[in-house]
Simulated assay, not measured.
Amino acid sequence: MLGIDPASIPLPHHRVGWVDPRAPWKDFLQLLESEGVPEREGDCWRPGCPFVLTGLHACGDLGPAALRQFARCPSVLGITTVSCCYMKATTLDEPAPPPREGDSESGYPMSAWVQGLPGHGLPYMLRELACHAIEDYAGRLKQETAELRVHCYRAALETIIRQLNPLLRRPGVQTGRKAHLLPFKE
């Protein structure tokens, strides 16, 4: 390996914290600093040191927030992000509360060019569909798997909740384990 001692390569450090998608990159670096890094000889993160930003299960606006930090922060050398839950991304029509004054950044679209296109909107239902492969659902429907029933239960329950309280547009109904084996009422 080109004469590089593997022990000299710094190990990754895991950080847990809330990342404000609208925060400036200096605030992002403060999150890293505030967490502290377990030190090993010659292995500690300091402000200004380069790093690779990695986001796994980067729900909603976390993926776009990571990409914005990558573009803005001079310390970020590279990025790997695995985004999911696209339906949770904010749009210009459905901003995340509470927006900062004068700030219009949203999860979609990130590009000013796309914002300028007529009809560029991406409604919730299309974002939701982006999370699911139609081939998987078609296969489940053909096999009549009981697990697909839980999706029907959740959709029906969300519809009932919306009828009772229209302000709860996407209540985020969660099901328990083996909910597909229970009758809807339970």
Rank of each mutant, 00 (worst) to 15 (best):
V114F: 01
Q115K: 14
Q115H: 07
G116D: 05
G116I: 13
G116K: 04
G116C: 05
L117I: 09
P118M: 03
P118W: 02
P118L: 04
G119R: 01
G119N: 03
H120S: 01
G121Q: 13
G121P: 02
L122S: 03
L122K: 04
L122Q: 04
L122M: 04
L122T: 02
L122C: 05
P123G: 01
Y124S: 00
M125T: 00
M125Q: 05
L126R: 14
L126E: 12
R127G: 00
R127I: 00
E128R: 10
E128A: 08
E128F: 06
L129K: 08
A130Y: 08
A130K: 05
C131V: 04
H132W: 08
A133N: 15
I134C: 02
I134D: 08
E135A: 05
Y137F: 10
Y137E: 04
Y137M: 06
G139E: 14
G139M: 07
G139F: 02
G139L: 05
G139D: 14
R140N: 10
R140E: 13
R140G: 08
K142E: 09
K142Y: 06
K142S: 05
K142G: 01
E144T: 11
E144I: 09
E144A: 08
A146S: 13
E147H: 09
E147Y: 06
E147I: 03
L148Q: 04
R149T: 10
V150P: 04
H151V: 13
C152M: 12
C152T: 07
C152H: 09
Y153E: 14
Y153D: 12
R154Y: 08
R154K: 11
A155M: 14
A155L: 14
A156T: 13
A156N: 11
A156K: 12
L157V: 10
L157T: 08
L157C: 12
E158Q: 10
E158K: 03
T159K: 06
T159P: 00
I160W: 15
I161K: 01
I161V: 14
I161G: 01
I161F: 12
R162W: 15
R162L: 07
Q163A: 09
L164K: 10
L164M: 12
N165T: 06
N165I: 03
P166G: 03
L167M: 13
L167C: 13
L167Q: 12
L167D: 15
L167S: 15
L167A: 15
L168A: 15
L168S: 09
L168F: 13
L168G: 06
R169C: 02
R170S: 04
R170L: 05
R170H: 11
P171N: 08
G172Y: 09
G172N: 14
G172S: 11
V173S: 01
Q174W: 07
G176H: 11
G176T: 11
G176C: 07
R177N: 08
K178L: 13
K178S: 12
K178Y: 15
